[in-house]
Design a binder for these strands. Sequence first.
DNA 1: GTTGTATTCAACCAATCAGTTGAGGATGCG
DNA 2: CGCATCCTCAACTGATTGGTTGAATACAAC
Lengths: 120, 120
Amino acid sequence: MSDDGLSRVFSALADPIRRDIVARLAAGDATVNELAEPYDVTLQAVSKHIRVLEDAGLVSRSRDAQRRPCHLEAEVFDLMTKWIERYRREAEDRFRRLDAVLERMGEEPVTGTATKEAAS
Amino acid sequence: MSDDGLSRVFSALADPIRRDIVARLAAGDATVNELAEPYDVTLQAVSKHIRVLEDAGLVSRSRDAQRRPCHLEAEVFDLMTKWIERYRREAEDRFRRLDAVLERMGEEPVTGTATKEAAS
DNA sequence: GTTGTATTCAACCAATCAGTTGAGGATGCG
DNA sequence: CGCATCCTCAACTGATTGGTTGAATACAAC
């Protein structure tokens, strides 16, 4: 389904374990075993979680003997931040404009809910 | 599963239709019908999507006759932004520290695109 | 070469999810 | 009232997901 990057990133971070893994990787690289230790699930489950994070571009892995150290790829966060900030700002601007309009007309509380037309 | 707010928010935004709805609501409030119009799914499907956004706290609804105008609740974005920024910053700081350490020992210049310590 | 450690693959299961159709509630209008 | 409009609830379906167990790979060490 959601083959686009943004969907994968949001989807990856929708899981508490995966968010926790990201949080711990932010403090430093770690192996699958190390990452799996605190959780009450099997190692394979954690391996899958890491795979999801990797597919989303949030984590990369290198090789160190039989270990596969995981590394947090911070750049991808920018994608999310940009998306979020864009619409947050838009919504806030709109709110501010509405506020100004209401203030300007000062009195009549506009009987007809004028909530249509979304041409940018 | 994801009973915490952050999971619900990320999960809600993991769907392209829902992200598009958010994008359009950032430009102004809209009814379910208006929102459903551009998509190739039934009205009920869109109604469900809106419900998910509402449960995540991203959207609120009022009543206008038989219409249920949807409104973007921008505050919730802050929750996400805070989470993201926290770990992004941590990861970047760590990266910068590592960079400094490497520089101090005059090691192999990790060279060129200093954004990755890639596995070659 | 055998053993041990770290990790993944494969097959399966239960739960959730995005979508459907069809019926039903709420409200405004003639 | 009867009827159309806007929207939601209920039940179902197929796909995805998070989890499991068990076998297999990759590598180091003995």
